[in-house]
């Protein structure tokens, strides 16, 4: 028996038509996650299971899209969720939404996994290369991130479908520009512009928001 993937509410994606996925954040999900994480920080297993049942199938799919096996994908997701349980007291909803936090944890864990399995070769054969991620951020940057998280969630829902499709393929399925072009039959330049445009728009909206602040 397979655990069923809990169906999200709000007609978020078209599961049967590849490439038509929408990227609208689930309404109320960020608030629900924040409340659940408050409980997880108090070692509430029911809250943790609720988060795991929502995110584990999606994180597993994210890893499968990157070519990992079913077993490896589940192992990495398990590591990520154990980390969520252990580090719950460090999660600060003012700094980032839970979905962003767990997305980063998963990407970093996956990169770490690739490094350990010798997919990166340094000059000397016995040396192990190390990838690092975004450097430590200041508290000022954290505050900025909290602002931008709200702006991003609002702006994503207003994007045209063709831009949403490109973002889904790039961020979730992890396809390169040329792979997206091959999958969709759209010229690579158009692929890049459809990814570039919404991200530029989001950055512009955020800068405008900051400018308006006293």
């Amino acid at each position: 028996m397979q655990l069923s993937n809990p169906a999200p509410t709000g007609a978020i994606y078209d599961a049967d038509t590849p490439g038509t996925a929408k990227v609208t954040p689930l309404p109320g999900r960020a608030d629900l996650d924040r409340d659940l994480m408050v409980r997880v920080a108090s070692a509430d297993r029911a809250a943790f299971n609720s988060l795991a049942l929502h995110y584990a199938p999606r994180l597993k799919a994210w890893l499968l899209h990157r070519g990992e096996s079913d077993a490896t994908s589940e192992d990495i997701v398990q590591d990520v969720l154990v980390s969520v349980w252990q580090k719950a007291d460090r999660f600060d909803a003012r700094k980032a939404s839970f979905s962003t936090w767990v997305y980063r944890l998963t990407r970093n864990r996956w990169i770490d996994y690739k490094r350990k399995h010798d997919r990166i070769n340094p000059v000397a054969p016995d040396e192990m290369a190390r990838l690092v991620d975004v450097p430590v951020e200041s508290s000022h940057a954290d505050l900025e991130e909290a602002e931008s998280a709200i702006a991003v969630h609002e702006a994503l829902s207003t994007l045209p479908p063709e831009q949403k499709q490109m973002l889904y393929l790039a961020f979730f399925e992890g396809l390169s520009h040329s792979e997206i072009s091959a999958r969709t039959g759209i010229a690579i330049g158009t692929v890049k512009s459809r990814i570039r445009a919404p991200l530029k728009k989001l950055r512009g909206a955020l800068e405008a928001h900051r400018k308006d602040e006293p």
Binding site: P25, A61, W101, Y103
Partner: peptide, 8 residues
């Protein structure tokens, strides 16, 4: 992260 919330 936002895409992850609603992805398949």
């Amino acid at each position: 992260g936002a895409i992850l919330e609603s992805a398949k």
